[in-house]
């Protein structure tokens, strides 16, 4: 649906993007992450045609783009309704005009739809901006910190709404945020950009699987803790197995759950819980962007 091929962008001698390639398919929600100055906004501007790439190309395949920048892109002298009506008038699809009230109801602004946007709070403006882009009804939706300023319940509501919107209409979203919780809840795939280069491109699950902290098993009170630890040491060749009460943690970046299950059953050791502990997306991101992420580049 959206194909970015070997995108390069230089501002004078400063290389901002270096061979950035992104492919987003229909139905996908992709997080595009990077620290400040990594080149996220430049990539978005190149995709939207606001910047001319120095090299490479962007293939939109006749798909329309809708974008919500960090600024809301609203007309402060117009009401919320008029802001949306303007984008409906620009839209190819005439029937969208009918959906304006419905769209404002979805974002929870039905009571203030005839009030001027300049009097709105930051969160309300953000909601109008989201509604505005949905009225335009693009095939590719690019969102730059779209939930910034929204309260928790509005945030969750919008995440679910956009997820359904993507699935029902077979659209795609490229999403940029610094809130890792949002990304875990919202996105299927994560692309991490560092110094103008993509250093990671994987599904959220795939990324987690690659970043196992270790395996944790909580044995029952009547089970032999010492014996359990000996079994685990011999299985993993790990001499820094940690125990906390009845729980044992094996700090190996490998999943041992199946082997542990089989061995404990064989040795009649009962356990309450056996789980793999993953790094949080935030930790993974920090690790990647602090230079330790080169292992993923291959």
């Amino acid at each position: 649906m959206l194909n970015v091929i070997n995108l390069k962008k230089k501002f004078k001698e400063n290389v901002v993007l270096n061979d950035v390639s992104i492919n987003i398919k229909r139905g996908e929600i992709v997080a595009y992450l990077g620290s400040n100055g990594a080149g996220k906004t430049t990539t978005i501007k190149c995709i939207c045609g606001l910047n001319t790439p120095t090299g490479g190309r962007v293939e939109l395949n006749n798909n329309t783009i809708g974008v919500v920048f960090d600024e809301n892109g609203l007309y402060p002298l117009l009401t919320a309704y008029q802001n949306l009506l303007f984008f409906a008038k620009l839209s190819e699809n005439k029937s969208q005009e009918i959906n304006i009230e419905e769209m404002l109801r979805i974002v929870g602004l039905e009571d203030v739809m005839y009030k001027r946007v300049k009097n709105f709070s930051k969160g309300m403006k953000r909601r109008v901006a989201l509604a505005r882009v949905l009225v335009w009804n693009p095939q590719i939706l690019i969102l730059d910190e779209p939930f910034d300023g929204l309260d928790v319940s509005s945030n969750n509501y919008m995440i679910n709404f956009l997820k359904n919107w993507v699935k029902e209409r077979n659209r795609c979203i490229m999403f940029s945020s610094h809130n890792m919780g949002e990304i875990e809840n919202f996105c299927d795939r994560v692309i991490v950009l560092n110094d103008g280069k993509i250093i990671e491109d994987d599904s959220v699950c795939g990324l987690m699987r690659k970043n196992i902290l270790g395996t944790e098993v909580c044995v029952r009170h009547d089970s032999d803790l010492i014996k359990s630890m000996e079994i685990l040491e011999s299985l993993t060749n790990c001499n820094n197995i940690q125990s906390n009460g009845n729980c044992i943690f094996i700090p190996h970046r490998q999943a041992y759950n199946k082997e542990i299950h089989d061995l404990f059953v064989k040795n009649n050791i009962s356990f309450d819980e056996l789980s793999i502990r993953y790094s949080s997306l935030e930790d993974i991101y920090i690790e990647l962007t602090s230079g330790k992420g080169d292992k993923h580049e291959q």
């Binding site: 939207c48 606001l50 329309t64 920048f69 960090d70 892109g73 609203l74």
Partner: peptide, 17 residues
């Protein structure tokens, strides 16, 4: 000037206007 700061011009340009 306001439109440029509010990014409304950029939003419309992104819509290939």
């Amino acid at each position: 000037f306001v439109e440029r700061n509010e990014k409304t011009i950029a939003v419309l340009m992104a819509m290939q206007i």
